[in-house]
Computed example of a mutant assay.
Amino acid sequence: MPISFPASLPEYCARDLVLAFPALVDERPVQCAITAEALEDHFGARSLREDDLVDAFVEHRAQIELAAQRLLMEVGAKPILLHSGFFRFCT
């Protein structure tokens, strides 16, 4: 199951306090997201402001995409949400 991540910037969803980013699983688009809490707790986001969250995502993109890839391998081509708790076990 090939998984890749387009190089686009993530989209901020203020209602859910997440950044959404796309993945391609078997060439099909799958929605991925990471919580603002995870970005603050594990990737140094300075606040819940969109700019701070995007900066943390961009700086740690490789780690975040690796975590997303691991979860996608488990659940298949289904949307995923990376919570702070996931990264506690993702070392």
Rank of each mutant, 00 (worst) to 15 (best):
M1Q: 02
M1R: 03
P2A: 13
F5P: 07
P6S: 13
S8V: 15
S8M: 12
L9D: 13
L9G: 05
P10K: 14
Y12L: 14
Y12V: 14
Y12Q: 10
C13R: 14
C13Y: 13
A14H: 11
A14D: 14
L17M: 15
V18E: 07
V18T: 14
L19K: 08
A20Y: 09
A20S: 11
A20E: 10
P22R: 08
A23E: 08
L24A: 14
V25R: 04
V30F: 03
V30G: 02
Q31I: 09
C32R: 02
C32D: 01
A33S: 14
A33P: 00
A33K: 04
I34C: 05
I34T: 04
T35L: 05
E37A: 15
A38F: 02
L39E: 10
E40K: 15
D41K: 15
D41N: 13
F43T: 07
F43A: 07
G44P: 05
G44R: 14
G44E: 08
R46S: 10
S47P: 01
S47D: 03
S47A: 07
L48E: 11
E50F: 11
E50I: 12
E50Y: 11
D51G: 03
D51M: 07
L53C: 07
L53P: 02
L53Q: 11
L53W: 09
V54G: 05
V54W: 09
D55V: 12
D55S: 13
A56T: 09
A56N: 06
F57V: 12
F57Y: 15
V58F: 08
V58Q: 15
E59I: 10
E59T: 11
E59Q: 12
E59K: 12
H60F: 08
A62H: 11
Q63L: 15
Q63H: 08
A68R: 02
Q69E: 13
Q69R: 15
Q69K: 13
R70A: 10
L71C: 01
L71D: 00
M73D: 02
E74N: 03
E74I: 02
V75G: 01
G76R: 01
G76K: 01
A77R: 08
A77F: 02
K78F: 02
K78E: 04
K78Q: 03
P79C: 05
P79K: 03
I80H: 02
I80K: 01
L81M: 03
L81W: 00
L81F: 00
L82E: 00
S84G: 06
S84H: 04
S84Y: 04
G85H: 05
G85E: 04
F86T: 01
F87Y: 03
F89V: 11
F89M: 07
F89C: 05
C90N: 04
T91E: 10
T91L: 09
T91K: 06
